[in-house]
Design a protein around this nucleic acid. Sequence first.
DNA 1: ACATATCCAACTTATTTGGTCGGATATGAA
DNA 2: TTCATATCCGACCAAATAAGTTGGATATGT
Lengths: 146, 146
Amino acid sequence: MKLSTKGRYGLRAMIDLAIHSKENQVSIKSISERQEISENYLERIIALLKKAGYVKSTRGAQGGYMLTKKPDQISVGNILRALEGDLNPVDCSLINDEKVCSESGLCVTKFVWKRISDSINDVVDNISLQDLVNEQVEIDKSQASR
Amino acid sequence: MKLSTKGRYGLRAMIDLAIHSKENQVSIKSISERQEISENYLERIIALLKKAGYVKSTRGAQGGYMLTKKPDQISVGNILRALEGDLNPVDCSLINDEKVCSESGLCVTKFVWKRISDSINDVVDNISLQDLVNEQVEIDKSQASR
DNA sequence: ACATATCCAACTTATTTGGTCGGATATGAA
DNA sequence: TTCATATCCGACCAAATAAGTTGGATATGT
Ligand code: FES
Ligand code: FES
């Protein structure tokens, strides 16, 4: 029941992008330095976010990445699902309508899984990237004044 | 972000025990047959539940397992945490006060992890084993009358 | 031309998951 | 007492997944 490093690193990368890509392109290298994540690995993570449509890129010198939308239009749920796949605690027909569970009619644990799933998705879909950026700005402010 | 088979099998085993261990001891073998879980593996899972204090055993012929408490005194959260460890999406100081996260003062993702964690635990702590037994009885009833 | 970047597939290594196996021990019943 | 039925328990194992690396191809501003 743990998120992988993809989800954790990827969320930090998106916060970093939201803060730094307002006008300029942001390179993998600079994110990697600020966030202390391996350049190579970060590249693969951002590729997933690009494929999911939350990030766009420009190649070549002075190139880099930017968000495709405003941070308040991207939820933490969007980001985590792009990186981790669905956030359901089990693969169950009731939740993701694949035909995984046989005899789902007799199954009672599915009610538990469904409620967990709903609650997780509810939380992450109601936190936007902008919310986290705001928190970060607050933290940085109080750090600066020490 | 998935539960392992331990959690899934274990919860089913506990429901089975709640239904069948009202007066008699219930053997691994019989649970394994009803739930279609390997005897050997189930044994290891139930050992965890025993260690956590939700199940007691009697050795030898006619032996087996019983619950230590009434099903309404055991929550799904109790069971899942005994089998899976904590249900937090990350190992973070804010949540489980191990000193895992360095610079937690600067970290903003922890707010996300905390809210996910709280919501999961809230759900599972508010479903009792008895609730699931009741659902199961309903399902069995409607199956019988077909 | 060249330094700076992204792009991308293949590879590697470490860890976790999902078991199995073999025996030791306990106990009710014949 | 013997035997079948159980739990107990540590060691072992294979497959899958996570986590990260490597090497090169391609694009582009200066
Ligand atoms: S877990 Fe999907 S129906 Fe039981
Ligand atoms: S994840 Fe624990 S402080 Fe950031």
